[in-house]
């Protein structure tokens, strides 16, 4: 089954095109790393999947259905939430607020909604953290709460926008493992946006690389190559592997390699 399908999709803000004629398919239950340089349009791609930005041409299908706003099948962790850094609200209250705040009218949470909150906090191991004010949590701890929040309502697809930013390598590792475990346990499709490939290595089923308005999807070995990347960056690029890590660096392949 196809979880996400882009067919000849063009994404743009006015005259600024971030994706031209992009086509790819992500199978159900896959854990995909979304990579690309700053401004490549990773966040924009997520917004399009969420139905917040209409493609100027082409079509996007999520589990076989055209995209639409408020799709309950998609859980989302947006890129940095600065507003939360000084928040005195507890993680649990934040989650309650997002459940009751997703529609107008009755302002109180139901028992089923509170059970769902307990469930996602347990799945992410964030039960204790959720009792503390958000502002007192570390970046990695806050990320855990936000991942829990994205699991509310049992979506089948998870979009994570740079959850690793400003985390040290150990924390990065634990966030990726957490997502990987949840993804396997709940059989979810995950698009995990990251600046670096290294923390995702060995965990992902494939990479979706964005650059130069183009997109490439495939296994790490096929996409993270000097040839494909030079094309996507529009400049000579090289891939350096060292001690289990992979670096994408500027400049053509060195003659010695």
């Amino acid at each position: 089954m196809i979880a996400l399908e882009f067919d000849g999709v063009c994404l743009r803000y006015g005259s600024n095109v971030t994706l031209a004629d992009g086509s790819f398919r992500v199978g159900q239950g896959k854990f995909i790393g979304l990579l690309g340089p700053n401004g490549a349009g990773k966040t924009t791609l997520f917004r399009a999947v969420l139905g917040l930005l209409r493609p100027s041409s082409g079509s996007i299908r999520v589990f076989g259905q055209p995209t639409r706003r408020g799709n309950a099948h998609i859980g989302y962790v947006p890129q940095f939430g600065k507003q939360l850094n000084q928040l005195s609200l507890s993680g649990r209250d934040l989650l309650i607020g997002s459940v009751t705040g997703s529609r107008y009218g009755w302002p109180f949470s139901t028992a089923a909604q509170r059970e769902d909150i307990d469930r996602v906090l347990e799945v992410t191991g964030a039960g204790d953290l959720a009792r503390r004010p958000m502002g007192t949590l570390s970046g990695g701890e806050r990320q855990r709460i936000l991942i829990a929040q994205a699991l509310l309502g049992s979506p089948k697809m998870l979009l994570l926008d740079e959850p690793l930013v400003s985390l040290d390598p150990n924390r990065q590792e634990s966030v990726v493992s957490l997502v990987r475990d949840i993804q396997q346990d709940l059989d979810m499709t995950v698009l995990f946006c990251s600046h670096e490939l290294t923390p995702l290595l060995g965990k992902i089923d494939g990479v979706l690389f964005l650059g130069q308005r183009k997109v490439a999807l495939g296994p790490v070995e096929e996409v993270i190559t000097p040839k494909v990347l030079s094309d996507l960056y529009g400049a000579p690029m090289d891939v350096v592997r060292s001690a289990g890590r992979v670096f994408v660096v500027a400049g053509g392949p060195s003659p010695a390699a």
């Binding site: 706003r69 939430g81 507003q83 607020g97």
Partner: peptide, 20 residues
């Protein structure tokens, strides 16, 4: 509007994705 307003104030991108 208090509940959606709170949600949209604290997490605007997420609220938007939820259809607010």
């Amino acid at each position: 509007i208090a509940r959606p307003l709170t949600f949209a104030s604290l997490q605007p991108e997420l609220a938007e994705a939820k259809g607010i």
